[in-house]
């Protein structure tokens, strides 16, 4: 991952839940305007790692994070950093679409409102429209913008959550298995969307689908039992991985 500037840099990251260590001295650069896929068997620490990137672990009971996580060269684990502001810069989209039980409009407007990104109603309208366009959802919802977000299909809800995340102008977008509840068509639309979004954002995605990682990510990192075993260009990882554990996992040979 040497060939472009790191947007985020993780050094010697250790994470524990109470006295159980979940991640062991992880080093990983997240390159700018690329998609980085995190893969590995269930429980290997992918979600834990992802949550370290925007301090979502702060609110988890017993979770202790040690080591360095930088965004554009400055640490994000600092007393002076406001986690809410950080999470606007480093947004997250979860596995299960989780729109608020509010209108489509309010779902997207929520972030810009609390961060004071719009001075007037028409500015807010603008942000909502632009975010929905970027999330590839505008054409489908522009005539029903006051309907409840929960009235949308699963795939549409997930794109709504993406619109909500990008409405606050993030720099990094974290996605934790964003397509696992979606059918192949909805999945393809999200993947297509991710590819467009990466011009503007840096994306980190956790996925259980090797094919998805291969399709969308420029870089892939393989986690196993709390260790980062191998990282590199996606094509290399999937054709000629260096480590036997990577190979066994991606070829379906894991016990």
């Amino acid at each position: 991952m040497e060939d472009s500037i790191p947007k985020m840099r993780v050094e010697n990251l250790d994470v524990s839940y109470f006295d159980k260590q979940a991640l062991f001295s992880i080093n990983l650069d997240i390159t700018k305007n690329n998609i980085t896929a995190l893969i590995g068997p269930s429980g290997c620490g992918k979600s834990t790692f992802l949550r370290c990137l925007n301090r979502m672990n702060d609110v988890i009971d017993g979770c202790v994070v040690k080591g360095k996580v930088e965004l554009d060269g400055s640490t994000i684990y600092d007393q002076r950093i406001d986690p809410v502001t950080l999470r606007a810069k480093v947004g997250i989209v979860f596995q299960k679409p989780n729109p608020f039980p509010k209108s489509i409009y309010d779902n997207v407007a929520y972030g810009p409102r609390i961060h004071g990104l719009a001075n007037t109603n028409s500015e807010l309208d603008d942000i909502v429209e632009k975010s929905l366009i970027r999330a590839g959802l505008w054409d489908e919802v522009k005539d029903r913008i006051s309907d409840s977000g929960t009235s949308l299909s699963g795939g549409q809800q997930q794109r709504l959550c993406i619109a909500r995340a990008i409405a606050v102008n993030p720099q990094v977008l974290l996605m934790d298995e964003p397509c696992s509840a979606l059918d192949p068509i909805a999945t393809a639309r999200i993947e297509e969307l991710m590819d467009e979004l990466r011009n503007r954002y840096t994306i980190v995605i956790v996925t259980h689908s090797m094919q998805q990682a291969a399709r969308v990510a420029q870089y892939t990192a393989f986690f196993h039992m709390g260790y980062l075993v191998e990282k590199g260009a996606t094509e290399k990882m999937f054709t000629t991985p260096d480590d036997k554990r990577t190979q066994d996992y991606i070829t379906g040979r894991f016990g």
């Binding site: 054709t239 000629t240 070829t251």
Partner: peptide
């Protein structure tokens, strides 16, 4: 059916 990867792909 299998979408082979790595050694299998090769």
């Amino acid at each position: 059916l299998r979408q082979p990867m790595a050694v299998d792909l090769r």
